[in-house]
């Protein structure tokens, strides 16, 4: 996925991204991090084509897909907060993922059902498929929305701070789930995360943003260091190397450079 020469602003105000370009590799988990207001969520919205750019475009395999339904067959999304519909079962909600494949009178019921079953299975929701969404905890609900994205059968899955409102158990559950999905089905995943430690442990590639620009990009073990943390977050830190990634311990808000 490529962003080329993108300029974006909200309601004609100051440009959040200006002449912005970035390449995001296929088949990997790319994690976007940055301080508040760094433009990381804007970048994700841009990749999802939710924002109209003043200039530039997003390309998937070299083509700029204009048709919204065709785009929804390539890219799905999971958000931090989701409204739900009362009295709807887990399965009914997951089935929404087939909408991009359905026309006014066109529907492949068997294929739709296959994808629903597969998505429920991957997310361990088979047992509670008939439960009402309202009866689920926040973590289970997030799993349902991941299942919905899987049911959409897209090559790319984009997640906007999917762990923000979850406790530690469900945070790890969501991240482990995304890891297994990527490995199993060769999906390409892009996530915006606030937690740099989680980004370090679960990212194949990390994009570190500040003021609408990519300051660092690459493998976490290469780009995460005291200097990059100081540049991005304006804090000094200690970094401990672990087999699964680096652990960053923030110390003060006045970094020593």
């Amino acid at each position: 996925m490529q962003v080329k020469n993108m300029t974006i602003s909200y309601d004609g105000q100051k440009n959040i991204l200006e002449n912005f370009s970035v390449d995001i590799p296929k088949g990997q988990t790319t994690i976007i991090v940055g301080a508040n207001g760094s433009g990381k969520s804007t970048l994700l919205q841009t990749l999802l084509k939710r924002l109209k750019p003043k200039e530039g475009a997003v390309f998937i395999d070299g083509s700029d897909i204009k048709d919204q339904k065709s785009f929804a067959k390539k890219v799905s999304a999971v958000y931090q907060q989701n409204s739900t519909i009362e009295e709807m079962s887990v399965e009914e909600l997951v089935a929404f993922g087939r909408i991009p494949y359905q026309g006014f009178l066109k529907r492949d019921i068997d294929k739709d059902q296959q994808h629903i079953e597969w998505a429920l299975e991957q997310t361990s929701l088979l047992e509670i498929r008939k439960s009402s969404i309202l009866a689920l905890s926040g973590g289970q609900r997030q799993r349902v929305f991941i299942a919905l994205a899987l049911c959409q059968d897209t090559e790319w899955i984009l997640l906007d701070e999917p762990t923000t409102y979850l406790d530690m158990y469900y945070q790890i559950e969501v991240l482990e789930l995304m890891k297994s999905i990527k490995e199993l089905k060769d999906k390409s995943i892009i996530m915006v995360l606030h937690d740099i430690n989680q980004a370090s442990a679960y990212g194949d590639e990390i994009i570190m943003m500040k003021a609408g620009k990519v300051l660092y990009k690459g493998e976490p073990k290469k780009v995460i260091n005291k200097e990059s943390i100081a540049d991005i977050y304006n804090v000094s830190s200690d970094i401990i190397e672990m087999p699964y990634g680096k652990i960053i311990i923030p110390r003060t808000t006045s970094p020593e450079k």
Binding site: R50, Q68, S70, A72, Y79, S83, I99, F145, Q152
Partner: peptide
């Protein structure tokens, strides 16, 4: 009914399902 339900998931989810 389907359109109303999709809007019930929030504009962001509706958009990523290919809904204008």
């Amino acid at each position: 009914y389907k359109k109303c339900n999709v809007l019930g998931l929030g504009d962001h989810n509706a958009h990523s399902l290919g809904i204008n």
